[in-house]
Design a protein around this nucleic acid. Structure first.
Length: 577
DNA sequence: GCCGTTTTCGGCCCGACTGTTTTCAGTCG
């Protein structure tokens, strides 16, 4: 269960920060790059090491002799001496402080040297006392930004990203399901509803051997604490910091319990009201008549059916109209994974991504896609090695070459060439429109000047949308979960412009973005604005993140017809024209 | 510290933007 890749990536990121503090040239970038590679790896480094030794580690892009040694040291001892030495010299909780938007290594170091600030708590106290503004290089605004950043970090605390937790939940579910004694199992709660952030995890099982199942549960790998262990309920904490509950329920109540523990609370209250109206009583034990005779409970379908409702997909259970729709048998047919025909936003090694165009394409083929749009950054984002006019032309040739290969192999798959151009402060792009017009499509994204006032930001986006080369707006609200709020923009105006100028809004699948979010997706759908679910993958593994964008789309009531990349290649090409 | 259709050494890490130190360092993507 322990995730070596993430742990080492975290340490490398901190090393990068410590080195940046001392203005060490180039090394910070090298460590950062390696951290990104490690974090996006599918296979655990311990496996790579076991199979291929230190040589195999050095094969990883961005990892050389020195870092490979450090990885081995970590695998063998759980520590990296070099890192501990740096931390000793400057005992700052860098990971914690860097969470605050606007604070980097240099400023953090000054704060430590002048005010002795080592962590978030000390930072907040100093900012509140007004000690930061008078420092050389700081000021009123910086202090205010720091306080706002801390407040934001705090609000998000205690909740985990769906994308962080989901793989672990799947693993636990598989382990439990593999026990012969477990007859039925499901995860419930906000995970089943696919909420973007999760408080804790609930599992329900049906079993004839509860003791054995509970014993197995509390000794799962990764369990660091057992809060309680009983016949019907046990709770544990995993080393990642979140709690998991396991409940054993009788078969005749399984559906009612699943319905109850899936929530949301608001959905349950509304459902119970329907039961009361029908002179029935709904609880986690079942649906009962006034005479306490059980009439449903074995599965969810029969519970909803007995209430004369259609079964409601968990993603919709937020009491946002799904109850009424289920009563009228008018629930939407939510978009499904198998309806996704391709991905229109991913990055190749041309702009610093982890894999070549060929490798990305092969992965897309293995996912069953008909097409993949390569959309590398344009020149402004040089750190990501953004492409200029000539490079785009060169990339075009490369893509045509690869497409030829697929064609010769008689494969029903095509690469498209797009790009992710930057919408600058004035609403223009960072690259000539004439170069953009040569591509199959253009994605526009905001990556700078995020703190503009609402009116200016709205005008900036609409100006970009009016540009006929623009087809898709990437991550339209700009939030980073647990880190940064959305930028200020008049969303209704954006929707009107999207409709008028036929611009597609992206549903970005990255677990830290999920942008548009569920609420905005629902409004966009109601306004008749089309969307595209994209991964924004920077490596081939990240193409698998599509499921998280899909969940968000489903939470926003999106159907196949609302999603651009549910179109087959022919229709898509027409739509992109 | 990594990497090599410029290379085993000498490049790499750019541009927009912000806030603040009135000319530029730090941050972000």
């Amino acid at each position: 269960m322990k995730n070596n890749n993430k742990e080492i990536a975290k340490i490398f990121n901190e090393i990068s920060g410590f080195l940046a503090m001392d203005k060490v040239p180039f090394k910070p970038f090298a460590y950062e790059k390696a951290a990104v590679v490690l974090a996006s790896l599918n296979e655990d480094v311990s496996q790579i090491y076991q199979q291929g030794g230190i040589k195999a580690l050095e094969e990883l892009p961005g990892v050389g002799e020195s870092m490979a040694k450090k990885i081995v040291e970590y695998l063998k001892t759980g520590k990296i001496k070099y890192y501990q030495g740096l931390k000793k010299m400057t005992p700052i909780n860098l990971a914690e402080i860097s969470e605050v938007e606007g604070l980097g290594p240099k400023k953090t170091k000054i704060l430590y040297e002048k005010l002795g600030i080592r962590n978030l708590k000390e930072l907040e106290s100093a900012a509140k006392k007004g000690k930061i503004a008078p420092l050389f290089g700081f000021g009123e605004k910086t202090e205010k930004n720091i306080l706002e950043g801390i407040a934001f970090t705090k609000r998000a605390k205690g909740r985990f990203l769906l994308g962080e937790i989901f793989p672990m939940v799947r693993e636990i579910e598989e382990r439990l399901a593999s026990l012969g004694e477990v007859e039925k199992i499901s995860v419930a709660g906000s995970i089943r509803r696919k909420k973007e952030t999760i408080g804790d995890v609930d599992f329900l099982v049906v079993t004839k051997a509860p003791e054995k199942v509970m014993d197995f549960f509390v000794s799962l790998p990764g369990v660091v604490k057992v809060w309680g262990k009983g016949k019907t309920k046990s709770s544990v904490r995993l080393e990642e910091g979140f709690d998991v509950d396991l409940r054993v329920v009788p078969p005749k109540s399984y559906g009612a319990a699943l319905q109850y523990f899936t929530g949301s609370k608001e959905h349950n209250i509304a459902t119970r009201k329907i039961a009361i109206f029908k002179n029935l009583k709904l609880s986690e034990y079942g649906l009962f008549t006034k005479g306490n005779k059980i009439i449903a409970g074995r599965n969810e379908e029969e519970v909803y059916q007995a209430l004369e409702m259609d079964w409601i997909p968990p993603e919709l259970r937020e009491n946002q109209g799904e109850i009424e729709a289920a009563l009228k048998h008018q629930l939407p047919h939510l978009v499904e994974q198998k309806e996704i025909k391709g991905d229109l936003h991913c990055h190749s090694d041309w702009d610093g991504g982890g894999n070549t165009i060929s490798e990305m394409a092969e992965k897309a083929v293995s996912l069953g896609y008909q097409y993949l749009g390569i959309s590398d950054h344009t020149k402004f984002l040089r750190i990501e090695n953004g492409l200029g006019e000539e490079e785009l032309a060169g990339q075009r040739k490369e893509i045509e070459k690869i497409n030829k290969r697929f064609q010769d192999a008689n494969l029903d798959f095509q690469l498209l060439q797009g790009c992710e151009a930057n919408i600058l402060k004035d609403g223009s792009f960072d690259i000539k429109d004439s170069a953009l017009a040569k591509l199959d499509y253009v994605i526009g994204g905001i990556h700078s000047s995020l703190k503009m006032a609402q009116k200016e930001m709205t005008e900036r986006m609409i100006k970009a949308m009016k540009n006929p080369v623009l087809k898709i707006i990437s991550h339209p609200s700009g939030r980073i979960l647990k880190k940064r709020d959305e930028y200020e923009v008049d969303f209704e105006k954006i929707l009107r412009a999207a409709k008028e100028f036929k611009v597609i809004l992206e549903i970005n699948s990255s677990p830290v973005r999920l942008d548009l979010n569920d609420k905005k997706i629902k409004i966009a759908k109601e306004r008749g604005v089309k969307m595209a679910i994209n991964t924004d993958a920077h490596s081939r593994e990240q193409l698998e993140l599509m499921e998280f964008g899909l969940y968000q789309a489903r939470r926003g009531w999106a159907e196949k017809k609302d999603i651009l990349n549910c179109e087959g290649i022919k229709d898509l090409r027409k739509s992109l024209k």
